[in-house]
Amino acid sequence: MASVHAVKTATTLAPTVRTLASGVPLPSRLNLNVKAPHDAHAHGHGAPGPRTDVQPRWAGGISRASSGLISKTYTSVSPSTHFQQRFISTSVARKDAPEVPDFSAYRTNTDSNRALSYFMIGSMGVISASAAKSSVSEFLQSMAASADVLALAKVEVDLTTIPEGKNVIIKWRGKPVFIRHRTQGEIEEARSANWKSFRDPESDDARVKKPEWLVMLGVCTHLGCVPIGEAGDYGGWFCPCHGSHYDISGRARKGPAPLNLEIPAYEFSEGDAKLTIG
């Protein structure tokens, strides 16, 4: 048997770049930071910014050193424990969970439901506004006087017990109220006075609802004392504190009082028999 020897031929190609002793090629003319040439069909990708085909510097990349080209990749070391485990059930393709969830419950046909949608939103506005309105009005009502206060705020007076020419003082909301059953002479006196020249001009007509009944708050308009009845220069009331004189219609005539005695709201009921103040 003749032994066959294969003829081995070794050829050494001349290197295209200079090679270091370690065998690493050293391309001295290679510019790694050159931008890609402008491409009309590049759709605007990458032309002005960094090259998209070169990984960013923070992720490693190629650098040139005296020892040659160095390619580095910075990667985070993956944790040694298994954070993600695959179970048999998850590896099987699930037929009931397609990739696109079923959104049919959310799908609205905006064209055909347009009027309905507006109607629904409008209805919500209507009911909300109604609820808000009654909330506000109920809240405001809660600030009004309560029923027990209102019940005390009215006072009834039996007028039949007051003889002509007499004063009666009653209490109403903590203040005295003067009720005078005026005589005919007093009415004429009150009417005949030249009221336009008074300090607080007011006619007797405007101060009484019925001429024989004069109803006033018994609080002096000067500093709030209670005037004395059937006294003073004008036959009406006289305030002892600072000497204000009121006439038989309760008008300020003399002294420091700036205004006439105040008239509360009152009503006659059951003919002339009863007077309701408040």
Partner: peptide, 8 residues
């Protein structure tokens, strides 16, 4: 109504 509007 607010459920409807939320869906809408």
């Amino acid at each position: 109504l607010s459920l409807y509007v939320k869906r809408f």
